[in-house]
Write a protein that binds this DNA or RNA. Structure first.
Lengths: 112, 112
DNA sequence: CCGGGACTTGAAGAATTCTGCAATTCGCCA
DNA sequence: TGGCGAATTGCAGAATTCTTCAAGTCCCGG
């Protein structure tokens, strides 16, 4: 497998590695939305949101088009939902493990 | 949904956003491996690999344990494979779209 | 044609992340 | 016990990414 491919995969994941961008993608799962709506649901400055949207566009995870005076954004492929779902599962698995370990640590004596 | 949760999700994805770390995870899909093996398959300095492994450990995506004089690494949950698979699907969807667009651009006259 | 809302772009400084070198730890075995 | 291979840690400088502010574009209504 070529090195540039790993680069591309990494870039794909790095694109999701930001709270605002994650939130945007989750909102877009419900369908296309204008920037104006995203802005009202995410606590961030307009220019910052635009920057984050640009990152998502650059990678090709979302697409945008104009509808009258509004700019709409949409997921470029429904596969994005799978990615988010897989992320949630891992997060929950990891947190469960952590809690499990914590519980175990508390249940036994230090010398055990 | 709380803001810290988005932070946690973002951190999870950011963890995967590095070529070496992606490669490590793909290798670990086949089962636990010692650092020594990873090192022989990935072109990176030992200290760099260690740093990247530390990042993966911190997030809880992988776990490590000692086996004699070797340190072994393993995926903490098989769900990681799903994430990588979803990433691949999106990448291929995005690239296909791009190629599709390119082909379309080439097939029509500039003024069309 | 002008005003104003809806977004985007450019750019700079702050904050993070990456990389590689040197030094260190840990366990094994002669 | 001393030497070694295996890995990790501590850092410093380089490279990226984030955030914000100021300025600019586009489009609709008047």
């Amino acid at each position: 497998m070529s090195v540039p491919l790993y680069q591309a995969k990494a870039e794909m994941f790095r694109t999701l590695g930001h709270p605002v961008r994650i939130r945007v993608l989750e909102l877009l799962q419900a369908g296309p939305r204008p920037v104006r709506d995203l802005l009202s649901e995410i606590d961030v400055e307009p220019s910052n949101l635009s920057q984050q949207l640009a990152v998502l566009r650059r990678t090709g995870v979302v697409v945008s088009f104009r509808d009258g005076s509004l700019v709409m954004y949409a997921l470029s492929t429904p596969d994005v939902a799978d990615l988010l779902a897989a992320g949630r599962r891992i997060l929950s698995a990891v947190l469960t493990d952590r809690d499990g370990l914590l519980a175990e640590l508390r249940a036994h004596s230090p010398s055990e």
